[in-house]
Every structure is written in structure tokens, then in C-alpha cells.
């Protein structure tokens, strides 16, 4: 079995969000970069768990990015995975990224392609579904559980107010979220091993992005909190009703 895990580099969850260049660029100075949490905690770790059950499985990691994504890829390799692929290009938009990954996966013989359910920076939730369509494979989004029996996957996906259980044959594309796996920390052996695992750099395909970010905005700041004394808590309901008109 061959698994391809898509990895994205995102600012740390506590990073200060600010913009430069007339609000056209994310201010990356001093920002800590991490593996997108959904890619790491759920997609990658679930793939590692599958390999632990079936040691013949091979895990490849893929990212679309320039050389500054290498530390993130090495960190992912320290958690697990046999080799990494980096398509050497700026990820212009979801379609551009999905097209690059699909081009690599097309003849790669992958049985499973895992992505996180979205990245925590652009919140697109799009790359997995696009890869699936480009490769004409089934796509299961928002998977919270994934079990494999032979060639057949049983997947629980979260939907509004409940869950759906689906059965589908490999190959397929899955977007992963909380519930899929438990978060892990790389150990020393993994970190040492990651240094010598192959990281192949590939040239991008000529693909035209379909969208482009024109500018960013920060949300308006709050006016300030109106405090209500605890002994007079009922006043909150009156304010919500009469002032905020919410009841």
C-alpha cells in the first residue's frame, strides 16, 4: 500500500496576524512556522498508524513550496514517512497546488491520498477535493474515523448535527480532521532518521491559478466589554434582549 500525505506550512496558531506591502502580503517576519495542524495531527499520524499495522506500507509526503518549507518537511519526516517530495513553487492558489500534487500522484500508484480538512491560514478546504476531481478518484471530506479492511475503507465523516458512515474502495482521497488520530511528538530516533530520508525537489507543472488574493483586512476591533456585576447577572438577559436585540 502506498500513501501520499499532503503537507502544508502554516504560521503557528499563536502567530500575530499582520500584513505588509499595502495589506497585500502576510507579515512573515518573526513568525514561527509549523506543519498545518490538520495535516500533522490527523492526516500524517493516521497514515503512520496504518503503516504500523501494515509495515509493507510506504508513506510519501508532498508539499508545494519553496526551500523555506524544508524544515517543516523534515519535521514531518521525523514523525514518520519514508520520503518527501517538494514541488518547487509558490503555492499560488488551491487549484495550482492541487494540480501540482495531482500531476505527481497521477503515475505514483498511490492507494490513499490524505490531506488535512483545511489549512489554518487560508481555510480553503479545497485542495483534497480538487486532487480527487483531477485524478477522477472518490473524495471523502471531513473524515473523523478511517478504517481499512483489505481494499475497502470505512470512513466516518462529520456532517452538520451528526455523522455519516461511508464505505469506499481504494484508491481515494480523504480530508482528515479531529478524531482520526491522536497527536504525537517526534522522538529523537525519528528526528535523527529524518535527516537522511530522501527529500526530492521537483519542478512545477505550468498551471495557471484561477484566483488571486488582492488584499487582506483585519477585523474591526471590539468597542470594549460591558461588565455586569455577578450578583445582578439577570441584567445580562435584559441587555441581550433590549440592547443587542438577540432574544
Amino acid at each position: 500500500m502506498k500513501i501520499l500525505v499532503c503537507i502544508s506550512k502554516t504560521p503557528d496558531t499563536t502567530a500575530k496576524i499582520a500584513f505588509t506591502d499595502n495589506n497585500r502580503k502576510f507579515a512573515a517576519d518573526g513568525v514561527q512556522w509549523i506543519i498545518n495542524p490538520y495535516d500533522e495531527w490527523y492526516a500524517l499520524v493516521r497514515a503512520i498508524e496504518l503503516k504500523e499495522k501494515d509495515p509493507s506500507a510506504v508513506i510519501h509526503l508532498i508539499t508545494v513550496g519553496t526551500a523555506d518549507a524544508d524544515p517543516i518537511i523534515r519535521k514531518a519526516l521525523a514523525l514518520g514517512g519514508d520520503e518527501a517530495l517538494r514541488v518547487n513553487a509558490d503555492g499560488q492558489d488551491s487549484f495550482f497546488i492541487a494540480s501540482q500534487i495531482a500531476a505527481v500522484a497521477k503515475d505514483g500508484g498511490y492507494d490513499l491520498i490524505f490531506t488535512g480538512k483545511e489549512t489554518i491560514d487560508y481555510n480553503g478546504s479545497s485542495v483534497g477535493g480538487m486532487i480527487a476531481a483531477l485524478l477522477d478518484l472518490p473524495y471523502i471530506s471531513l473524515a473523523a474515523k478511517f478504517d481499512l479492511a483489505g481494499n475497502s475503507a470505512t470512513i466516518v465523516r462529520e456532517v452538520e448535527g451528526g455523522e455519516e458512515t461511508e464505505e469506499v474502495s481504494l484508491p481515494l482521497v480523504v480530508s482528515c480532521q479531529k478524531g482520526m488520530a491522536e497527536q504525537r511528538i517526534p522522538n529523537m530516533k525519528g528526528i535523527m532518521g529524518a535527516r537522511t530520508k530522501p527529500l526530492k525537489v521537483l519542478d512545477p507543472q505550468p498551471v495557471e491559478a484561477l484566483t488571486e488574493i488582492v488584499s487582506f483586512e483585519l477585523p474591526p476591533t471590539k468597542k470594549g466589554v460591558k461588565m455586569i456585576p455577578a450578583e445582578n447577572a439577570e441584567e445580562l438577559i435584559r441587555l441581550l434582549h433590549e440592547e443587542a436585540k438577540l432574544m
Partner: peptide, 16 residues
């Protein structure tokens, strides 16, 4: 206009 950075900012995206 869409949410980005998990609700910490907005982006204006041009569809081409």
C-alpha cells in the same frame, strides 16, 4: 471577501 487565518483576518480574492 472571505475569512482567512481562522477568523483572524479577511482576504479579498479575485476570481479570474
Amino acid at each position: 471577501k472571505k475569512n482567512v487565518f481562522s477568523g483572524k483576518a479577511f482576504a479579498i480574492v479575485s476570481i479570474k
